[in-house]
Amino acid sequence: MGNGGEKMGMISVRGVTHSFGATGALAGIDLEIVEGERVALIGASGCGKTTLLRVMGLQLQASSGGVRVLERNPAEMSSRDLRAIRSRIGMLPQDLGLVENLRVVQNVLLGRSGRRSLLGTMRDLLWPRRKDREEVFEILERMGVAKKMYERSDSLSGGQRQRVALARLFFQEAEILLADEPLSAVDPARGRDVLECLTGMAEEKGSTLVVSLHQVELAREFFPRLVGLKNGRVVFDGQPDERELAALYEL
């Protein structure tokens, strides 16, 4: 834990720039996120939300600027250390990243790849351990898709697939949860369920949660801290009042 009762800094991004192509570039981002915080990144498509999430998830090395995640500097880490840190960061990509022709249970087990050896992963695919199977079953039951545990992932509906991806994230037991547009694949009525599930997951494990979103209303309801992005810069940070809210809608 942090010194002197202060909360540990989970993610620290200072003066980060990154550029490729025309969109999604970062033009000097400063952001500090501490333990247990729940943050929503708001902005139009192409404003750099996905790029920022990928930088925070240590998937993308920023062109310049300093990044510290879980109080470690990725630039100084060996690839072994980097993998160990990554296993503590959960990522939910926009397209969910499920292996379509594997069963649900196998997809969920892949959440712990970072803590498995290559042989362990092969075992998960061929003969998963009873303990793991039971754990997966419990998680799927909470997500309401337990019945689908042994079905192929490509036979599920969009909402069910979202739950399977969430179950994989839950199974990983990460300290930082990053979700990229988790509502883009579900119908609007289900959006609330997904956010409830994510925030509940974060609360239960005390994890830090960063989500990128389009929907300002929902973001305000579930997240105490909103970060507005425009053209690769932070234009707002905090809990918006009415006037600021109008500006956020503009984004």
């Binding site: 993998r83 840190i85 960061i89 292996v99 790849s113 803590r115 290559l118 992963t121 994989r168």
Partner: peptide, 20 residues
């Protein structure tokens, strides 16, 4: 993208290949 999830979660490239 599925391989990306595995490597993002700390898995090796080989694990990503075998599993995804």
């Amino acid at each position: 993208s599925a391989k990306g999830v595995i490597t993002a979660g700390g898995g090796s490239g080989a694990q990503g290949f075998v599993a995804a």
